[in-house]
Design a protein around this nucleic acid. Structure first.
Lengths: 341, 341
DNA sequence: ATTCAAAATGCAAGCGCTTACATATCTACT
DNA sequence: AGTAGATATGTAAGCGCTTGCATTTTGAAT
């Protein structure tokens, strides 16, 4: 059995190059503080040995990890993929590594992940949405961990947020639907508890309805986790009603895709028999047919700006400031006028 | 400005509980080696202080991180999401944390990520596919880092693999298509270079064609990165031919979804004008309409088994053994008989 | 040649934890 | 009561790196 040759250390490099470990360290971290000749010597030792610095040791000594943690509700569907990708690209660009974990939409798991990420020395954290136990904010604050919230902008939140106004965005979409003449509207929403995005979207719809003078008690809402199957099930349920809705607003594109599939399965035409809308404008929205009317969210921009802001907070110890991004309605054929009622 | 209270350490806990740091450490790691009374005292100190062990310090001292690294080609589409999710669930179950990074299908980025993950103390690595610079295998071997390959099973690879036979799977699908009477077949493949999965799938198709006695020179292949848009573009290109193919086999469901969208855009009926098939059987396959005939890959099983195997390798210092999983063809309406030719 | 600030390098003290090994404290017997 | 053997706890040596401070070297300027 081959002998286990453990990884070369700074010491090995230093010996080989005939310098102190301090110098090697400087070569790696602040090369301009080392004269060229030495630097070259060290570099060749590094190459010869195939040296890679030990991350744990570095973090410990420097009390700095150049790592940012992000906790997202789920990796299973594409909702967060694009924004996160942009976030990570921008971080990489700034010399940071991203550590991602998912909470499966469970508050206690999220809390555990936050602790884990901090224990791992994350220099900063990205969180999704505002709804969570206040003691988490206390903890973050006490530990002075820079943290930023994305996917939902609120002006007076405890942590700065980079995102959009979920309520307003959905309000506008609902208004648009109403303006087309729809009077029987139903909603397939994500689980509202602990999810301000979902909650605010529903409120946006409520706003629009009461605004329009319609009977708001009529609004039927099904709450269900963000999964395609659930969209299908919820659609089924809504269509069982004596008087069917003419438009169904979904909390996101995934739910809407499920609804569309079910409509097709039931032989209903979209939008002639029923209109369906989504939210997010992920790729899925253009894959279903007919394509989905939805709210376009600038995911990449959001990810990029969140990265910039968070790095700024980390490096300059600032409190950071939020930023509201604009969304826009994307009109596609899944939404039409209601059938002659 | 509030004073920065830095994180409590083992020492703080030890002092508060009136024991040595060793005892506190044992309470946390091997509780049965500590008498109950002490354990309780320590526990309350931990709670009172809100102590969380410092990960870097722990890794350094224990030379063990309980972390597994995985490098996947992309997070942007769902191909790897499901399998990785299962992988991570099983790891979590076994007390390990998963660190994921993506290589964007670039070999040099993958190599960098491998080094990064090792520097971060990963106890083991999950890699996707077999095609990579042999020196990477040397490096892994020299450092004695347990590593496993997924998404492609090969009997005699340098590293054990848990996956399926891409060539055979596609061979069977192609045979099925041929048996329906298709004679003009085209392929939209992922980029083959450095991607044995893509390469083997194409070979599977070639096998089937030469097997069937058809002119294999006729096989038109477009190679393009795995993105929806590219599927659409490739479809376009293929349909420009003087004699259009009657069936298009795509390297995965994403490409197939793009092709479907483009077909619809061009007013072509699937499968009456042209049949389209995918590979993977991700959710997408059932969202497009008509639903996609594809090869079902047991993603979750693969992820789970990979986790089990890798943990076994890490904990028992074994070389690990590969496992071949079965795939199956899923027949859906995107594939039909060719139009009367 | 001398002198001296600036530049380059070395020294060594940690960072917060785990874990041999040493020591102290219990058991349950005789 | 005394003692061996098991059990519980303490001591202290690292793990591989960074960094403040001390020391040496360099390069002008005199």
């Amino acid at each position: 059995m081959a002998k286990l040759r453990s990884a070369p250390t700074l010491d090995d490099v230093a010996k080989m190059a005939g310098v102190s470990t301090a110098t090697v360290s400087r070569c790696l971290n602040t090369p301009d503080r080392v004269v060229e000749a030495t630097r070259k010597r060290v570099q060749s030792a590094v190459d010869a040995l195939g040296y890679t610095p030990n991350f744990a040791a570095r973090v410990m000594a420097a009390k700095r990890s150049f790592t940012i943690g992000a906790i997202i509700p789920t990796m299973e569907n594409a909702i967060f993929a694009r924004g996160l990708q942009a976030f990570q690209e921008e971080l990489h660009h700034r010399g940071y590594t991203l550590l991602v974990s998912s909470s499966a939409y469970k508050p206690d798991i999220e809390e555990e992940q936050i602790r884990t990420l901090i224990a791992r020395g994350a220099d900063g954290l990205l969180l999704i949405g505002h709804d969570r136990d206040p003691k988490i904010y206390d903890y973050l604050n006490q530990r002075k961990i820079p943290a930023l919230i994305a996917w939902s902008y609120l002006p007076d939140s405890r942590l700065p947020s980079v995102g959009f106004d979920n309520r307003k965005a959905m309000f506008e979409l609902a208004n648009h639907v109403l303006s087309l003449g729809h009077e029987r509207i139903a909603v397939i929403s994500g689980i509202v508890e602990g999810n301000d995005r979902a909650r605010l979207r529903v409120e946006g719809i409520r706003d629009a309805i009461s605004h329009s003078g319609l009977e708001s008690g009529d609004l039927k809402i099904v709450e269900t986790p963000y999964e395609i199957e659930n969209g299908a099930t919820a659609f089924c349920e809504l269509m069982k009603a004596e008087t069917r809705p003419t438009a169904i607003l979904c909390g996101n594109d995934v739910l809407a895709a499920g609804a569309m599939r079910q409509a097709q399965e039931m032989g209903l035409d979209v939008p002639d028999d029923v209109s369906i809308t989504g939210f997010d404008d992920i790729e899925l929205a253009r894959i279903v047919s007919p394509e989905l009317t939805t709210v376009h969210v600038p995911h990449r921009e959001m990810g990029r700006k969140a990265a910039l802001q968070l790095v700024e907070m980390v490096e300059n110890q600032t409190d950071g400031e939020g930023e509201q991004l604009a969304t826009r309605i994307v009109n596609r054929p899944s939404l039409g006028r209601p059938a002659q009622g």
